[in-house]
Nucleic acid binder design. Structure first.
Length: 512
RNA sequence: GGCCCGUUCGUCUAGCGGUUUAGGACAUCUCCCUUUCACGGAGAAGAUCACGGGUUCGAAUCCCGUACGGGUCACCA
């Protein structure tokens, strides 16, 4: 058992877009699988037909692909393996016929029973219990004795109801007063007494399994060795452990991940947080045609997937060194499930942006230029040449967190300024300003239009006249760029060329 | 409320009984670089390690209790 090939799975429910917490769970699964030379599967848990949302499954597949870690097997791996792999189908709704036999196995062994109580019956019992001061009534080893099930009804009666086609569910028969223990990879030993566990429904009235049955059966059939999932599953893990025991199956190792908390207020990050927080909580844009609901994603916000996953990996894990910027390969190499934190993590968008800035600088220049040109095109800016794009981009690269930032305050590289920073004009545009510019314009006309020559020429002029840089520099800057901020003005002049520079200087003289 | 899990700077975290005057990163502030903005560099501030008891020569690190936070209590996953 110990030397089995590592196989992990990410098993989301297609009830909407996958939020970043889900992506992190998937990422940790993937990192763990790859580190151990194992398989990462994607299984869709769509046993609740009432909550099915069209497009959600495709969204999940696309989101993982964007992040750079598509499944090796299962949904989204149909191009690698026929049908997604040897354990197809990977959608639980399509596996429906398989579960019944396992429920029967439990029934025969006395670990499960039929229950005929209707949803209305249950609601009534719960309501009565509530009135009596018990807010959460449970169908358990005590209460089941007063309900309609195969434990209380006679064998004949049960048979009769079954044959009459009466609706029923199959419930697990939770043992009485037994300590269930298991060792969680992240939390250590977790122990729960079955007195606190209820007789969960295993097979629903519509013949579909609930999460608990389907999950255990599928993980077993798909030879899953490690179950890495969110902490919200910790309370039901003992039931799963019991189920493995009832089936006499080897239980996989469990690792319950800490939750991603909402940056504001309390509670875990949820899909509903959407755009309310001022930043995306989803990997990619989401739009539901039916409801018109949509939410923005990191991809469309300009994030690199490398930065996104690096940031996510660090929400709950840390290599123990001072290295923070990781490529996927480095994450695979250094990730360690045992070093995952126990406490939930609140995430910080500023740090997320910092990760993007770091990864932005790691991108190859050719790729950046392409992205730059595409972004410029989207903004309706004319790029004369690739060389121009390269220079213009690099001028603003230092200050950018996203590629789009290099274009945000750079309009003057593409067209003459159509306005001037009024505050700076008031402060720096003195009565002598026009004369400085006329002088400079003449001098520049006789120099090589390169950054070095322009600057030398400018400094010469200052020295000759005895002017200070602060007196003349901002004036030139205003004329050329309309603002006093930005990269070296001489580099800008070299880039836009002598003709445009001359024109701008003249325009400024007449307009200001 | 029951059960389960957690608790180190504002945030993410390092730390696994002495090497700790508790380290790093983001954010904040200061200075340098740049007579601009940013980048970069240097530095500051920021955590009585939730609190109270133990155990030990010695505890952020081990144990117990309390408080607080979170999760979960469906024929949802």
């Amino acid at each position: 058992m110990e030397n089995r090939r590592v196989r992990v799975r990410f098993a989301p429910s297609p009830t909407g877009p996958l939020h970043m917490g889900g992506v992190r769970t998937a990422l940790y699964n993937y990192l763990f699988a790859k580190q151990n030379g194992g398989d990462f599967l994607l299984r869709v848990e769509d046993t609740d037909q009432t909550r099915f949302v069209p497009g959600a499954e495709a969204y999940i597949v696309e989101a993982l692909a964007w992040c750079g870690f598509s499944p090796d097997e299962g949904i989204g791996a149909e191009d690698k393996l026929p049908g997604g792999g040897p354990h197809a189908p990977y959608r639980q709704s399509e596996r429906k016929p398989m579960y019944r036999a396992f429920a029967d196995q439990l029934l025969e062994a006395g670990h499960a029973y039929y229950a005929f109580d209707s949803p209305e019956d249950l609601e009534a019992v719960r309501e009565r219990a509530k009135q009596a001061g018990n807010p959460n009534w449970q169908y358990n080893s005590i209460t089941r004795t007063s309900m309609k099930n195969s434990l209380t009804l006679s064998e004949d009666e049960v048979q009769r109801r079954l044959e009459a086609g009466e609706a029923y569910v199959i419930r697990v028969k939770m043992p009485r007063n037994e300590e269930v223990k298991f060792e969680d990879r992240i939390r250590g030993w977790v122990s729960v007494n079955t007195l606190n566990l209820d007789d969960k429904v295993l097979l629903k009235g519509d013949g579909m399994p609930t999460y608990h049955l389907a999950n255990v059966v599928d993980d077993y059939s798909m030879e899953i060795t490690h179950v890495i999932r969110g902490e919200e599953w910790l309370p039901s893990a003992p039931l799963h452990v019991l189920l493995y025991r009832f089936f006499s199956w080897a239980q996989p190792e469990f690792a319950h991940l800490p939750l991603l908390l909402r940056p504001d207020g309390n509670g875990k990050l949820s899909k509903r947080d959407g755009d309310r927080l001022g930043f995306p909580v989803f990997p990619i844009n989401w739009h539901n045609e039916e409801t018109g609901e949509s939410a923005s994603g990191y991809r469309e916000r300009g994030f690199y997937p490398q930065a996104f996953i690096n940031m996510l990996a660090f929400l709950g894990w840390n290599p123990g060194t001072n290295q923070e910027i990781f490529s996927m390969d480095e994450l695979i190499r250094d990730f360690n499930l045992n070093k995952v934190n126990k406490a939930g993590a609140r995430f910080d968008f500023d740090k997320a942006k910092w990760f993007n800035q770091q990864h932005l600088r790691l991108r190859p220049e050719a790729e950046l230029i392409q992205a730059y040109m595409k972004e410029a095109g989207a903004r309706g800016l004319e790029i004369p040449s690739v060389d121009f794009a390269r220079s213009a981009m690099n001028l603003f690269m230092d200050r950018a967190e996203f590629i789009g930032d290099t274009l945000d305050a750079a309009d003057y590289l593409f067209s003459d300024p159509n306005s001037y920073d009024e505050a700076m004009v008031a402060k720096k545009w003195t009565a002598e300003a026009p004369s400085y510019l006329s002088d400079l314009d003449l001098l520049f006309a006789q120099t090589d239009y390169t950054e070095g020559h322009l600057e030398a020429c400018f400094k010469n002029y200052l020295a000759e006249k005895g002017f200070g840089f602060g007196q003349v520099g901002p004036v030139l800057r205003l004329a050329i760029a309309g603002t006093t901020q930005g990269p070296s003005i001489f580099t800008v002049m070299e880039l836009i060329g002598s003709e445009a520079s001359h024109r701008r200087i003249q325009t400024a003289i007449t307009r200001l």
